[in-house]
Design a binder for these strands. Structure first.
Lengths: 204, 204
DNA sequence: CATCTTCTTGACCGTTTGGTAAAAAGGACG
DNA sequence: CGTCCTTTTTACCAAACGGTCAAGAAGATG
């Protein structure tokens, strides 16, 4: 099986398509997105795009899978040997940065969840579950050592996901509510969330 | 302008359509949903359905607007004269109940946000903003009185929205990660969140 | 610069989509 | 039970959709 290395044009165009697809899928979801819309966003004709990716489904899977590793890396970085509040604080900060810098990725992920994760379900139940269980166990051990309040680590992780991704997924709502004073919302959110979680987790 | 009261059949069918539309729109979003799919879910032919609602757009607006008041009523119930932690705790509990009992409504709302809230934008910027500002002011006054920790009430409200709605919007993910032990997830979440927010908000 | 491969295009195809028209079927009510 | 209004159905339409095809344009390579 011959696998020749991609040409410069191939690399560029595949990249433009993935960027365009991210935009469209994040807004309209898989079913709502059209290959015409993606091609238009990528600045090329539909048949031209389909020369690089044979189907809409393939584009979607490529974008989604390309995103996963980046998306989960902050959690993977949470270290059992670190100081609990430092580790959790760093995780919150990193996740807020990602909501600010990669809102489309967050919304694409949210869209996949809303339709029942037909593509990612397997990964959620295996790889993701395994990692979350592992990190939740670390949190439990911190709690048993009395270094943080006793709690189920799973729900702590969910709470951090929810609060941080909210600023990407519900960006319209956040901006609508905050109005003109909303410019510093990511910094304010980071400060608020660290206070909330730090005080909420401190052992008592 | 004659407005006759709806017949029994009209009332029933409009209701069936709205229920079916909620299901389909919550899963596939506005663009991804098809009138055929909604009609099928409602158990009637497409032209029959369009006899009751002239366009897909009209169905969507009807469902969305019918949802809004219910959706925001828990926040409206937050009372300045109550005891802060009791009020906030009751709000969290009510929101978790809604995530459990009305997940489709939550996901429909999420879908509308993800595509930039083209229908709800106006309401977000006027009615919603007004109410959130009002409630955030109450929270600020509690903070000034030293009854809770100082904070921006807006972000507290966002955090409660995010953490509670997460259990509806990301239900697949939550269930995938929790596995078979996930049955009590709404109760566990309520307990966890109350602990988190109570400790996180206590004045110090 | 000739040749071979890669890339792009316009024309096209069958299916799905949102919606319409007209007529048949059903229900309410005197 | 006949009449009138409501409801449902069948058949249909134009546009949008995902995708194909063959031929031409542009790049790479000797």
């Amino acid at each position: 099986m011959q696998v020749r290395k991609p040409t410069r044009i191939q690399a560029e165009n595949r990249d433009r398509i993935k960027t365009a697809a991210l935009e469209v899928f994040a807004r309209d979801g898989f079913r709502g997105a059209t290959v015409d819309a993606i091609a238009a966003a990528a600045g090329m004709s539909k048949p031209n795009m389909l020369y690089y990716f044979p189907t809409k489904d393939r584009i979607y899977r490529t974008v989604l899978e390309g995103l996963l590793e980046t998306w989960l890396s902050p959690l993977r970085a949470m270290n059992a040997d670190g100081e609990p509040l430092r580790e959790i604080g760093a995780y919150i900060e990193r996740k807020i940065e990602m909501a600010r810098d990669f809102p489309l990725e967050s919304r694409l992920f949210a869209n996949e969840m809303l339709r029942g994760a037909p593509i990612l379900k397997d990964i959620l139940e295996t790889d993701l579950k395994q990692m979350v269980d592992e990190k939740a166990a670390i949190i439990s051990s911190w709690a048993e050592q009395g270094r943080i309040a006793p709690m189920d680590g799973h729900h702590l992780i969910f709470a951090i996901w929810a609060t941080t991704q909210h600023y990407a997924d519900f960006d319209v709502q956040v901006r609508s509510v905050l109005g003109d004073e909303g410019d510093g919302r990511f910094n304010d959110a980071a400060e608020f969330l660290k206070q909330l979680f730090f005080n909420g987790l401190r052992p008592r």
